[in-house]
Nucleic acid binder design. Structure first.
Length: 196
DNA sequence: TATGGGATTACCT
DNA sequence: GGTAATCCCATAC
């Protein structure tokens, strides 16, 4: 079933980031569905987190979406080239978000390969930039609701054991400790579609 | 108004 | 493993 809005409106973003492992994310563009199982996430915990765009309550036109109520996506362009897909969580005014870093493709693989330029299946949705491109998402989808028919996440009843979710330091940051190496990246143990 | 730095990736050697 | 590609906008003059 499609995850209800209440899933995203909770404040415990680390728990939500773990719960997203083993859920299925889909986009429907012109009737063509693409997506797969989420195998890697990273949590960004609002004002206290040096690694977050919303550190110390920074709020600008660029990151304003992070302050919206949970259940929408925050799209961010990195290095001017790559679009990143983030899930906004918490109540309006809180600035928590979860970066989706990797997906194991299950549906619409041909279309995703077309969007990505025919890369091997293993690399199709590996890494946040690749994933957004495969799903057909870019900055123009900023603020898209996860309860609509364009983009959503489903619980298909797959049970992931807590012991199979690995916590590790987040990737690609350049911020001071302790936030540089705090284990807020979650991956599915043994899954070869994880980015690193 | 000018400048610098990214939640990265792919292609080169 | 080293590095170029490439753009929004926050911050500093």
């Amino acid at each position: 079933m499609k995850l209800p809005i209440g899933f995203y409106l909770r404040e415990n973003t680390l728990t939500i980031a773990k719960e997203l492992i083993g859920k299925f994310i889909y986009t429907n563009m012109n009737g063509e569905i693409t997506g797969g199982m989420i195998v890697e996430t990273e949590a960004y915990i609002g004002p206290e987190d040096r690694g977050s765009h919303a550190f110390e309550g920074r709020r600008t036109a660029k990151n304003d979406t992070m302050y919206q109520a949970g259940g929408v996506v925050y799209m961010y362009i990195c290095y001017g080239i790559h679009d990143m897909l983030n899930i906004v969580t918490g109540l309006e005014g809180s600035s928590h978000a979860i970066l989706i870093r990797a997906v194991e493709p299950t549906i619409g693989i041909k279309l995703m390969q077309f969007r990505r330029g025919d890369v091997p299946l293993k690399r199709l949705c590996k890494g946040p930039g690749s994933l957004a491109k495969a799903l057909g998402l870019n900055k123009s989808h900023d603020q898209t609701s996860l309860t609509g028919n364009l983009l959503w996440i489903e619980d298909e009843g797959l049970k992931i054991k807590q012991g199979n979710i690995i916590a590790s330091p987040r990737v690609g940051l350049s911020c001071p400790e302790p936030y540089l190496s705090i284990p807020w990246r979650f991956t599915l143990f043994g899954n070869s579609f994880v980015s690193k």
